[in-house]
Amino acid sequence: MTGPQLEDLRQRELITQEQYEHIKPILTGKIVSVFYELRTLLYLGILLFSSGAGILIYQNIGQIGHVLALSGLTLLMLACFAYVTLKRQPYSHHSVKPPSPYYDYVVLLGCLLLVSVLGYAQFQFNLLEGNLEWATLTTAVIFFAVAYRFDHVGILSMAITAFVSFWGIRLSIVNWAAGDFFTSRQLYVTALVLGLSLTAIGSWLDTRKIKKHFSFTYQNFGFLLYFAGCLVGMAAEDIPYGWFVLLIYAGCAAAYRIAQWKKSFLFLLYAFLAAYIATTVWLGDLIFDQHEVLWFLYSIISCGALIFFVVKYRHYFKQ
C-alpha cells in the first residue's frame, strides 16, 4: 500500500485519524524495525559461540581437566536459569511477553547447555551408562517444564523431540529427509500411538485454553509421526497394508477437522500427501499394473479432481 492510498482510506473514514497516524510512519518507512535482523545476529552469535567453545574445550581438555570443564558448563547453565528465574513473569495460560529481548535466548542457551552437560557427562565419565534413555526422558520433562514456565515454543519442540526419542524414534527433519526416520521398522506402532497422543494432547490443551500458541507444535509433530508411521507400516508388510490405508484415511479426516478449526492448513498438506501415496500404492496393486496409460490418466483425473474440489469449495479453506 502506498501513502496516498492510506490517505484515501482515512478520508473515506475507513480508518480513524489515530490509526492513520500509527500506520503512516511504518508504511512510508519513517520507522524501521530491525527486530528480525537483531535476533538473527544474536542467534548466529550463540550458534558460533557454542560450537567454537565446544571445540575449544574439547581440544584443551588435557589442560583444563574434565571436571573443571563440566563444572564450568554447569555453572554457566545454572547462571542462565538463575537469570531467567529472577526476571520471570508470572505464569499465564496465555502467551507471555518476554521481559527483555534476549530473555528467550537465555532460556534457550540454558537448555542447550543442559544437553551439553548431560552429553559430556555420559561421554567422559559414562555416568549415565545404561540409563541413557532415562536421561533423555528427564531432559524431556525438564524441557516441558521450562517451555511452559518460561513460555518458549522452541524449547517445547526440543522437549517433544527428546520425549519421542525416549521411545526410540529420532525425530528430526534432517533424519527424515535422509530416510532414517525410525531406527527400527517395528517402531511404526510406537510412532502411531505417539502421533495420536501428541495430537490429542495438543487439541485437548487447546480446548482448555492452556497455552493455545503451543497447540500447533503438538499437532504438527503428532501428524508428522502419525502419517510417517502409517507409511512406514505400509512398507513393512507385517500386516496387510490395507489397514494402514484405512488408518491414513482416518488421519485425513482428523487433519481436515483440525485444519478447519485451527486454520492451519499445513496438516491438510501432510494428509493429502500421505493419502495420495497410500491410495496410489493401493490402486497400483489393484488395477494399474497392466497399463501405463492408466497411470497417466489416474494422475490427471485424481489431481484435476482435487484442484477442482479445493477451488470450488474455497470457503472451507479460508483462513
Binding site: 565446544g54 542447550l112 549415565l128 527428546a162
Partner: peptide, 14 residues
Amino acid sequence: LGGTQAQSGKPFGS
C-alpha cells in the same frame, strides 16, 4: 541447535 539429544559418542551435540 537442539536437534540432537544426549546421545553417546557425541560430546557436543550441537
